[in-house]
Design a protein around this nucleic acid. Structure first.
Lengths: 349, 349
DNA sequence: CCCGCATCTGACAACGTTGTCCAGGCTCTA
DNA sequence: TAGAGCCTGGACAACGTTGTCAGATGCGGG
């Protein structure tokens, strides 16, 4: 048979293409297996001369230690898993990066996966990570029942939930103050004279969305403003439907004079819609947006610190692994109202 | 000693906390080890009754197969590695997500790491991934010498470089048409009457930056415009220095009337600077930016398709693993000039 | 010159899984 | 009813590494 494959399996040998093992290195260097292991791991008790010979063999063969075997023997993988919704979302990029930096500081690699907001896919990913025996898990949950994690927790897999709490199990959680942030954002609009305020947010089955909705209602109630159904749009996420929802609110005979948007994607779409309208409608959005300060008017937002969420969660994770963290807790990080103009527009009467 | 640890090592047993193994499951179900393996892997040759007993034991014990051991035996990890510059950069998020989707379609997990544009860190990451025996690597290189990968390539690790070519080795590459894109972008400015055009870009040791600079020079030369040194700022990346560079160009007695920016981060900073100035300076940026259409004026950009880069690279990777891809090649994806206003401003005389 | 000690080295088992191979029990047919 | 053949289940080795422990070597002192 002609040799058509260019890379793998071209050489006879084991299944990793043809990777040399410590045994091969030992044979070439004329030493024992364990001596090679000692050199590779920088353990003491090897004469410089022997070490030199081994190192030479390693370089000549292009040997790399097989960490799968190492993990099997040692029991720690020095890797952690991160399950989030969508890496392409500008909110999760910095979060992921922050987790990675903490992991790196602890000598661990990061394996991550996107759940696409699908509970089944979340579970599938988490279990795949557990099968690889990651030392710990950072999870931004899509589902609301995490009892499937019980065996893992019992087995000592460190776990921290971020952005949204775990469902049905007792686990560490790091979240933003979604309720307070939304309440303050809506109160800000009310303070600037608005009474008819729209809310466009994600499905209330998503914890953050529900909390932000609750904040909206609380602010309205505090001000003694009864909320009309037509002011609220829940569960729309894709740009097309958000657009339609916003258009409807503005087309109403008694239209809203301000809109509070429940997350960065919704905000961006609503900005587009408002830009097409002549009516000056006030806007406060949850989540910060790049370039929000350069738009006309600047976009007022309730900003949360994605990197801080990731960093805090990862640090707690490693404290679990250290054994310095004893009991699951819930950490709530504050949000910050950033006024830039759009939230300070007066109501167009 | 009091029990202070909450999770790991609380129970006696093996090193994964206390994970049940197939042996434990077999003992509990009263069957042989291999029978459990057959059930777990859905292999034929197990009576329904036996399968039921085994499944029951699995559920009762919370058994999860240990993939480290499996990998050791089978030789394939069903995981691929992605090394990029910074996950938090909006350009790499979608790229990473695209790679993940392709990996998922092939049943593989994605391990990724950020090199922070540091060649040593890139090598460290790549070798760590190789030690875990990833089946393949997608690399956005920071360095320009990849001979350290030779043993890996020989051993059959599928490898694709993205966004920038590999150095000193023969490997698959998927890049954007950086040269052509930049040339077209600058030509666009020239076509709108500009002659004094500034260029602010990254260090030319970065391949993409060098190509874009080459495109700038080519367009200027095609138009017969000699480039003055004061128009070019190379190697600045952090916002503060980009800002200073832009200020200087504008403060010149004969200031530039247009600026071409070499990547998304530079573009954002320059937009900020221009917004503070009254002079109408034209701008074309490399890389698209969210909300660029809503600024006043809209930002004209040379857009590249990050997701397509990732997707193409990952698909080639799996074709290497299939054996259906025979020789390394270089794929160049086109860029797209998106006119939105800032690039069509006439020169302020 | 021999013993004891320190230092360096290697043989061996174990980690948890899968592939190979064989044994035992069953069914079916002659 | 005996023999052939099939189906199920289990014993065993192997994957590449590391921990344990004991053997080999060399050196100095008695």
């Amino acid at each position: 048979m002609p040799d058509t494959t260019r890379r793998a399996d071209r050489l006879p040998g084991n299944r990793y293409g043809n990777r040399p093992t410590m045994k091969d290195v030992a044979a070439r260097a004329g030493v024992g297996l364990k001596t090679v292991s000692r050199v590779v791991n920088g353990e003491p008790g090897v004469t410089p001369e022997t070490e030199r010979r081994v190192q030479e063999a390693i370089d000549a063969l292009g040997f790399r230690r097989n960490d799968s075997a190492r993990v099997l023997r040692k029991g720690r993988t020095a890797s952690i898993g991160l399950v989030l919704e969508d890496l392409a979302d500008p909110f999760y990029g910095p979060l992921s990066r922050a987790v990675e930096e903490v992991a790196r500081a602890h000598g661990a690699l990061l394996i991550n996966g996107s759940s696409a907001e699908d509970p089944d896919r979340e579970q599938e990913l988490v279990l795949a990570l557990c099968a690889r025996r990651v030392d710990g898990l950072v999870v931004i949950p899509a589902g609301d029942d995490h009892r499937y994690l019980e065996p893992e927790l019992k087995a000592g897999v460190a776990t921290v939930f971020v952005d949204r709490p775990a469902g049905q199990i007792d686990a560490d959680v790091v979240v933003s103050d979604n309720f307070g942030g939304a309440r303050d954002g809506v109160a800000h609009l009310i303070a600037h004279g608005h009474r008819r305020i729209g809310f466009i947010g994600d499905m209330p089955r998503i914890h953050t969305a529900a909390e932000r909705l609750r904040g909206y209602r609380a602010a309205m109630e505090d001000a003694g403003i009864p909320v009309e159904d037509s002011w609220m749009s829940l569960g729309v996420t894709d740009p097309e439907r958000v657009r339609r929802a916003a258009e409807e609110m503005l087309a109403d005979p008694r239209p809203v004079t301000a809109v509070f948007t429940g997350n960065n994607r919704v905000t961006v779409t609503v900005i587009r819609v408002l830009a097409e309208h002549t009516a000056r409608v006030a806007l406060v959005g949850f989540d910060d947006i790049e370039l929000a300060d350069l738009l006309q008017p600047g976009v007022t937002v309730v900003a949360q610190d994605a990197a801080a969420l990731g960093r805090t969660a990862a640090e707690r994770l490693f404290r679990q692994l250290d054994g310095t963290l004893l009991a699951p807790d819930r950490i709530e990080l504050p949000t910050r109202l950033v006024t830039r103009g759009s939230g300070e527009l007066p109501p167009a009467v």
